[in-house]
């Protein structure tokens, strides 16, 4: 690998990690398509590399939320029973899925995430930053576990964190405050992504990619550490709008590649 490519990967990781942490997003949703489309990596390899970045974001940012008691560690551990199970099954299944099916699934998830962010962007215009965590009692565990199983499955299939599935379910149905739901989802993502990463690693989809993954993950670390620090001070509205545009573009590009058969 040349110095130029390594530098490009660091910058890409930094942006994905930074904006991801600011918007409460793993960054995997940006990285998998960018690696597949612009770096011409096979999609299975792109997913494996993206999983490493997702672990990096989660590890780097969740320590702060845990330290400040925003994360519900017990709820997180309970739901991890389901996310890891989903990730395990999906990572095994993904190996037998062809790249077009995976790409189409990815496009669907990109569209869904972009749509859910439109809603979030709209809400962020009025909402004040919550500083304290109100008292709450977690409800509806079965639904939460079911959603976590699906989120974990998508994580293993697509190399993402699955936050856009878990956060709304925790917030709307389990009656967990939004800030706690976001922090707890972020906390769970590391373990979930690690579960499927072990399977990708064992298959050899990742050993060959360490050279590509390392500069990217280095950038992701730096970006998400900075992003998590800035998050409470920055107005998220414009960041969300920017990410929605990027995600829309990536979805369109990926769909175009699927239709024209240009995906390697």
């Amino acid at each position: 690998m040349t110095l130029g490519v390594a530098f490009l990967l660091v910058v890409l990781g930094f942006l994905a990690g930074g904006f991801g942490a600011l918007a409460g997003l793993g960054g995997g949703i940006i990285l998998t398509p960018v690696l597949a489309i612009y770096f011409h990596l096979p999609i299975h390899q792109a997913i494996g590399i993206s999983l490493l970045s997702v672990i990096a974001t989660s590890t780097a940012t969740s320590s702060q939320y845990v330290e400040h008691h925003v994360t519900d560690v017990r709820l997180g551990m309970t739901l991890e029973l389901a996310t890891t199970m989903g990730a395990l099954i999906a990572a095994l299944v993904a190996q037998h899925m062809n790249r077009r099916t995976l790409a189409v699934l990815f496009v669907c998830f990109l569209a869904y995430s972009a749509a859910s962010m439109v809603k979030k962007a709209w809400g962020s215009r009025q909402e004040e930053h919550q500083t304290t965590v109100p008292d709450y009692k977690v409800r509806n565990y079965p639904l939460g576990l079911g959603a976590s199983l699906i989120a974990g499955g998508l994580s293993g299939l697509l190399g993402i964190g699955g936050g856009p599935i878990k956060v709304p379910v925790m917030y709307l149905f389990m009656k967990v405050p939004l800030r706690v739901a976001t922090a707890t989802s972020n906390f769970m993502i590391g373990v979930t992504a690690a579960t499927s990463a072990y399977i990708y690693w064992g298959r050899g989809d990742m050993k060959t990619s360490v050279a590509i993954a390392a500069p990217l993950v280095g950038g992701v670390f730096a970006g998400s550490l900075l992003g998590a620090r800035l998050a409470p001070k920055v107005k998220t509205f414009y960041i969300l709008v920017l990410l929605i545009v990027v995600m829309g573009w990536l979805a369109a590009e990926m769909l175009y590649k699927v239709v024209t058969g240009g995906l390697s």
């Binding site: 029973l81 890891t84 199970m85 990730a87 395990l88 990572a91 095994l92 373990v191 690690a194 579960t195 499927s196 072990y198 399977i199 990708y200 690693w201 064992g202 298959r203």
Partner: peptide, 9 residues
């Protein structure tokens, strides 16, 4: 579950 994933991998 995580250890199982490791060995399956």
């Amino acid at each position: 579950i995580v250890v199982l994933a490791y060995f399956l991998g």
